[in-house]
């Protein structure tokens, strides 16, 4: 349980790992929108090519990506089937309540590829960006939201602390569980109700210790002159580097590609 990390950061050294995390978040959003703006096979091909390039560039084993796809495989199959059987237009063949049309086939292909691309793009982000960098980038990207009285700094601080304490609390859960088992607690057998009941001896101490930790952490933060986000500077400055500008150019190219394909090449249906 000890080695669980939030997100699914896969530490290794690749261009994508070294990119500015802010850029990665913005491009992810951009590509997600783009994926749903593919109106013909040519633009879809551009998006699929981009995703394949990103996956290869990340140097994360393809096996890892397949694992993250496995989770949503059922959703992909169901939505594709629904689209396949309930398309508009002339049926190619019909059986009972199912009728398959050309439009249905196209829809199914599009929906399936779009969802796969969506998951792959998101996985590229989480595999190549550590949770710490991600929070950091989110805080900076959301900064403009402060004018809407959104407590951006506080939210980011909460995320940082949560990330910091997840491994500590997991470790503690392990310890408390072992200690209660040593006193004969039975957590593996019995009905659902009795299993939930068996969690009380674990959850109560865990809550108590979390409150104690929170209190001590607050004291420690105050001792270190923490006064909220006001007047606070950051050691790590995010600056766009040459590789970031190059990747911006590549992203824009992909976007332009999709838009041009949509406009100048024929729609499929």
């Amino acid at each position: 349980m000890r080695d669980v990390t939030l997100g699914q950061y896969f530490p290794c050294d690749s261009v994508l790992h070294r990119l500015d995390p802010r850029l990665k978040i913005v491009s992810l959003i951009g590509f997600i929108v783009l994926t749903f703006c593919t109106f013909n096979y040519f633009s879809l091909a551009v998006v699929v090519a981009t995703v394949i390039a990103a996956v290869l560039l990340s140097r994360v084993p393809v096996k890892m990506y397949l694992k993250s796809l496995k989770v949503i495989i059922i959703i992909v199959i169901i939505t594709s089937l629904l689209n396949l059987f309930y398309g508009q237009g002339e049926p190619i063949f019909e059986w009972w309540i199912f009728k398959v049309t050309w439009a249905g086939i196209h829809n199914a292909i599009f929906v399936c590829l779009r969802i796969v691309c969506l998951i792959l793009f998101s996985s590229v982000l989480t595999f190549t960006t550590s949770p710490n960098d991600l929070t950091d980038a989110l805080e900076r990207l959301m900064k403009p939201l402060t004018i809407f009285h959104i407590k951006v700094h506080e939210i980011a601080m909460m995320m940082t602390i949560a990330l910091r304490f997840v491994p500590t609390l997991l470790e503690e859960t392990d310890k408390i569980m072992a200690a209660q088992k040593a006193r004969g607690a039975d957590m593996e057998s019995g009905s659902l109700v009795s299993r939930v009941k068996a969690l009380i001896p674990v959850l109560v101490p865990l809550f108590v210790s979390s409150f104690r930790r929170a209190y001590e952490l607050a004291v420690a933060m105050e001792c270190r002159c923490y006064q909220g986000g006001k007047g606070r500077t950051r050691m790590k400055q995010l600056k766009l580097k040459k590789r970031d500008y190059i990747s911006i150019a590549i992203c824009l190219l992909a976007i332009a590609g999709v838009v041009l394909c949509n406009i100048f090449l024929p729609q499929i249906h």
Binding site: E172, K175, I176, A178, A179, Q180, A182, R183, I200, P201, V204, P205, V208, S209
Partner: peptide, 9 residues
């Protein structure tokens, strides 16, 4: 265990 007081509930 070590620090057994953390298991009281």
């Amino acid at each position: 265990f070590q620090y057994p007081e953390y298991q009281l509930f």
